[in-house]
Protein backbone atom coordinates (compact mmCIF):
# COMPACT_ATOMS: atom_id res chain seq x y z
CA UNK A 1 0.00 0.00 0.00
CA UNK A 2 1.47 3.44 -0.92
CA UNK A 3 2.76 5.64 1.90
CA UNK A 4 0.15 8.37 1.26
CA UNK A 5 -2.73 5.90 1.61
CA UNK A 6 -1.27 4.51 4.83
CA UNK A 7 -1.06 8.04 6.19
CA UNK A 8 -4.62 8.78 5.00
CA UNK A 9 -5.89 5.65 6.79
CA UNK A 10 -3.96 6.47 9.94
CA UNK A 11 -5.30 10.04 10.15
CA UNK A 12 -8.82 8.78 9.45
CA UNK A 13 -8.57 6.21 12.24
CA UNK A 14 -7.23 8.84 14.61
CA UNK A 15 -10.07 11.21 13.69
CA UNK A 16 -12.73 8.54 14.21
CA UNK A 17 -11.23 7.45 17.54
CA UNK A 18 -11.27 11.06 18.78
CA UNK A 19 -14.38 12.51 17.13
CA UNK A 20 -16.46 9.48 16.10
CA UNK A 21 -19.17 10.00 18.72
CA UNK A 22 -19.29 13.76 18.02
CA UNK A 23 -19.83 13.02 14.33
CA UNK A 24 -22.88 10.94 15.20
CA UNK A 25 -24.29 13.77 17.29
CA UNK A 26 -23.59 16.19 14.44
CA UNK A 27 -25.37 13.94 11.93
CA UNK A 28 -28.41 13.83 14.20
CA UNK A 29 -28.39 17.63 14.41
CA UNK A 30 -28.98 17.67 10.64
CA UNK A 31 -31.13 14.61 10.01
CA UNK A 32 -34.08 13.41 12.08
CA UNK A 33 -34.85 10.24 10.14
CA UNK A 34 -32.73 7.43 11.70
CA UNK A 35 -32.40 5.43 8.49
CA UNK A 36 -31.29 8.40 6.38
CA UNK A 37 -29.10 9.59 9.26
CA UNK A 38 -27.10 6.36 9.02
CA UNK A 39 -26.54 7.09 5.31
CA UNK A 40 -25.50 10.65 6.13
CA UNK A 41 -23.06 9.41 8.76
CA UNK A 42 -21.55 7.00 6.28
CA UNK A 43 -21.34 9.83 3.74
CA UNK A 44 -19.50 11.96 6.31
CA UNK A 45 -17.04 9.16 7.01
CA UNK A 46 -16.37 8.59 3.32
CA UNK A 47 -15.92 12.34 2.76
CA UNK A 48 -13.53 12.46 5.71
CA UNK A 49 -11.48 9.51 4.52
CA UNK A 50 -11.24 10.98 1.01
CA UNK A 51 -10.35 14.42 2.38
CA UNK A 52 -7.46 13.08 4.46
CA UNK A 53 -5.65 12.38 1.21
CA UNK A 54 -5.14 16.14 1.07
CA UNK A 55 -4.78 16.89 4.77
CA UNK A 56 -1.55 18.79 5.26
CA UNK A 57 -1.93 20.09 8.80
CA UNK A 58 -2.67 23.68 7.78
CA UNK A 59 -5.45 23.60 10.36
CA UNK A 60 -5.99 21.34 13.35
CA UNK A 61 -7.41 17.86 12.88
CA UNK A 62 -10.52 18.86 14.82
CA UNK A 63 -11.18 21.91 12.64
CA UNK A 64 -10.72 19.80 9.50
CA UNK A 65 -13.04 17.06 10.77
CA UNK A 66 -15.81 19.47 11.72
CA UNK A 67 -15.56 21.48 8.49
CA UNK A 68 -15.80 18.36 6.33
CA UNK A 69 -18.63 16.94 8.46
CA UNK A 70 -20.66 20.17 8.48
CA UNK A 71 -20.09 20.78 4.77
CA UNK A 72 -21.20 17.23 3.95
CA UNK A 73 -24.28 17.63 6.13
CA UNK A 74 -25.15 21.00 4.55
CA UNK A 75 -25.03 19.38 1.10
CA UNK A 76 -27.27 16.65 2.44
CA UNK A 77 -29.84 19.12 3.81
CA UNK A 78 -29.84 21.08 0.56
CA UNK A 79 -30.47 17.88 -1.39
CA UNK A 80 -33.24 16.78 0.98
CA UNK A 81 -34.95 20.15 0.70
CA UNK A 82 -34.98 19.78 -3.05
CA UNK A 83 -36.45 16.28 -2.83
CA UNK A 84 -38.89 17.36 -0.09
CA UNK A 85 -39.05 13.91 1.42
CA UNK A 86 -41.41 13.31 4.30
CA UNK A 87 -40.21 12.09 7.69
CA UNK A 88 -42.11 9.46 9.66
CA UNK A 89 -40.98 7.52 12.70
CA UNK A 90 -40.51 3.81 11.92
CA UNK A 91 -41.88 1.19 14.30
CA UNK A 92 -38.31 0.06 15.01
CA UNK A 93 -37.56 3.50 16.42
CA UNK A 94 -40.53 3.69 18.77
CA UNK A 95 -38.48 2.25 21.68
CA UNK A 96 -36.39 5.44 21.46
CA UNK A 97 -39.41 7.33 22.73
CA UNK A 98 -40.18 7.46 26.44
CA UNK A 99 -40.83 4.07 28.02
CA UNK A 100 -43.07 3.66 31.09
CA UNK A 101 -40.61 1.29 32.74
CA UNK A 102 -37.55 3.54 32.61
CA UNK A 103 -36.72 5.71 35.58
CA UNK A 104 -38.22 9.17 35.79
CA UNK A 105 -34.75 10.71 35.61
CA UNK A 106 -33.90 8.81 32.39
CA UNK A 107 -37.25 9.76 30.87
CA UNK A 108 -36.68 13.43 31.71
CA UNK A 109 -33.22 13.33 30.15
CA UNK A 110 -34.48 11.57 27.04
CA UNK A 111 -37.23 14.14 26.69
CA UNK A 112 -34.81 17.02 27.14
CA UNK A 113 -32.46 15.57 24.53
CA UNK A 114 -35.32 15.03 22.08
CA UNK A 115 -36.44 18.63 22.55
CA UNK A 116 -32.86 19.83 22.15
CA UNK A 117 -32.55 18.04 18.80
CA UNK A 118 -35.92 19.37 17.73
CA UNK A 119 -34.68 22.88 18.50
CA UNK A 120 -31.35 22.38 16.71
CA UNK A 121 -32.97 20.94 13.59
CA UNK A 122 -35.11 24.07 13.26
CA UNK A 123 -32.15 26.44 13.30
CA UNK A 124 -30.56 28.11 10.31
CA UNK A 125 -27.40 26.34 9.20
CA UNK A 126 -24.86 28.69 10.74
CA UNK A 127 -26.75 28.92 14.02
CA UNK A 128 -27.00 25.13 14.08
CA UNK A 129 -23.25 24.86 13.57
CA UNK A 130 -22.54 27.26 16.40
CA UNK A 131 -25.02 25.44 18.66
CA UNK A 132 -23.37 22.06 17.98
CA UNK A 133 -19.92 23.52 18.63
CA UNK A 134 -21.14 25.08 21.87
CA UNK A 135 -22.67 21.81 23.07
CA UNK A 136 -19.46 19.97 22.16
CA UNK A 137 -17.66 22.35 24.49
CA UNK A 138 -15.66 24.29 21.90
CA UNK A 139 -14.56 27.83 22.62
CA UNK A 140 -15.47 30.83 20.44
CA UNK A 141 -12.11 30.85 18.61
CA UNK A 142 -12.42 27.20 17.55
CA UNK A 143 -16.03 27.75 16.49
CA UNK A 144 -15.03 30.81 14.45
CA UNK A 145 -12.29 28.84 12.69
CA UNK A 146 -14.68 26.04 11.72
CA UNK A 147 -17.62 28.19 10.64
CA UNK A 148 -15.81 31.21 9.22
CA UNK A 149 -17.87 33.52 11.41
CA UNK A 150 -16.13 36.39 13.14
CA UNK A 151 -15.21 35.77 16.78
CA UNK A 152 -17.54 38.60 17.82
CA UNK A 153 -20.42 37.09 15.91
CA UNK A 154 -19.78 33.70 17.50
CA UNK A 155 -19.74 35.28 20.95
CA UNK A 156 -23.07 37.00 20.25
CA UNK A 157 -24.62 33.77 19.02
CA UNK A 158 -23.33 31.81 22.03
CA UNK A 159 -24.82 34.43 24.32
CA UNK A 160 -28.21 33.95 22.61
CA UNK A 161 -27.86 30.16 22.75
CA UNK A 162 -27.29 30.31 26.50
CA UNK A 163 -30.42 32.39 26.96
CA UNK A 164 -32.52 30.09 24.78
CA UNK A 165 -31.30 26.96 26.56
CA UNK A 166 -31.92 28.52 29.95
CA UNK A 167 -35.47 29.50 28.93
CA UNK A 168 -36.40 26.23 27.30
CA UNK A 169 -34.80 23.76 29.66
CA UNK A 170 -35.54 24.55 33.25
CA UNK A 171 -33.74 22.74 36.06
CA UNK A 172 -35.13 19.20 36.30
CA UNK A 173 -36.20 19.16 32.66
CA UNK A 174 -39.44 21.13 32.96
CA UNK A 175 -40.52 22.49 29.64
CA UNK A 176 -41.39 26.13 29.41
CA UNK A 177 -42.39 26.16 25.76
Amino acid sequence: MPKIERSQDRVYEEAVATHGAALERLARAYEADPEIRRDLLQEIHIALWRSFGGFDGRCSLRTWVYRVAHNTAVSHVSRRLRMRTQFFVALEDVPELADDRESEHAAVERDALARLYELIQQLKTLDRQVMVAYLEGMDAAATAEITGLSARNVATKIHRIKIILARRFQEGGRNER
Binding site: R50, G54, T72, S75, R79, G148, L149
Partner: peptide, 18 residues
Protein backbone atom coordinates in the same frame (compact mmCIF):
# COMPACT_ATOMS: atom_id res chain seq x y z
CA UNK B 1 -26.78 17.95 -9.10
CA UNK B 2 -25.05 16.95 -5.99
CA UNK B 3 -21.38 16.11 -6.49
CA UNK B 4 -19.00 14.43 -4.03
CA UNK B 5 -17.38 16.83 -1.59
CA UNK B 6 -14.04 18.10 -2.95
CA UNK B 7 -11.01 16.55 -1.28
CA UNK B 8 -9.93 19.93 0.08
CA UNK B 9 -13.31 20.56 1.74
CA UNK B 10 -11.55 20.80 5.10
CA UNK B 11 -9.79 23.96 3.93
CA UNK B 12 -13.09 25.80 3.42
CA UNK B 13 -14.93 27.20 6.38
CA UNK B 14 -18.64 26.44 6.59
CA UNK B 15 -19.49 29.96 5.38
CA UNK B 16 -17.22 29.66 2.32
CA UNK B 17 -18.66 26.27 1.46
CA UNK B 18 -22.28 27.35 1.86
Amino acid sequence: SWLPLPKDAGLSSCIEFQ
